[in-house]
């Protein structure tokens, strides 16, 4: 599909579009965008399917009640997937693949993705949000903690970038 896929949108205009979606979320929901909460609630649901009694007794997932998936950010995550799917199909950018540099093995790339996922999932619970809920939403609200979180993402990312650079080498 690589040949007939569209160019990406002008990043500044894409940013304005994203900012307007966030503004709409503030004005309608009274809360910004979020993604990691949806994932965490999925985690609570899955863990609840395996160990039902245990999850209800835990301090963190336990307070989400019998049905952790009935939450607005879970629905937003589903919407994000569908919106992405719509746009990707429209632009001809759907292709089942493991994205990586040519010289890097798929297995190692997936291991890095898994490890990064575990860390990001854990860290977003600790910071009460991820790039969407804290860095994007909280920064637009000019909240101190969210701006600090935003800066720290880049500090952490640049500090570790050198160690994982090979996955993108062609």
């Amino acid at each position: 599909m690589g040949t007939n896929q569209e160019k990406y949108m002008n990043p500044y205009l894409a940013g304005v579009l994203l900012g307007l979606v966030l503004l709409a979320s503030f004005l309608v929901l009274g809360a910004g965008l979020g993604a990691s909460s949806g994932i965490a609630r999925l985690g609570a649901f899955v863990e609840g399917c395996i160990l039902p009694g245990h999850v209800r007794s835990t301090d963190y997932f336990g307070k989400w009640g019998e049905n952790p998936l009935r939450y607005y950010l879970v629905f937003m995550l589903v919407g994000t997937f569908l919106g992405g799917l719509f746009s990707a199909i429209l632009a001809g950018r759907t292709k089942i693949e493991v994205e990586k540099g040519k010289s890097f093995s798929s297995r190692n790339r997936l291991l890095l993705a898994l490890g990064g996922g575990v860390i990001a999932g854990f860290a977003s619970r600790l910071a009460q949000g991820c790039t969407s809920g804290q860095a994007l939403t909280g920064s637009a609200l000019l909240l101190s903690g969210s701006l600090i979180f935003l800066v720290c993402i880049f500090v952490g990312g640049y500090a570790a970038a050198w160690f994982v650079r090979r996955q993108w080498h062609d």
């Binding site: 990707a88 860290a123 600790l126």
Partner: peptide, 28 residues
Amino acid sequence: QVVGGLAFGVGFVMSGWCPGTAAVGVAS
């Protein structure tokens, strides 16, 4: 949020994804 941000950055650069974009990535 400092500790979470630093760790999140490491996870971000390792995987190349964050939660919201990964949902779009799966869709792609």
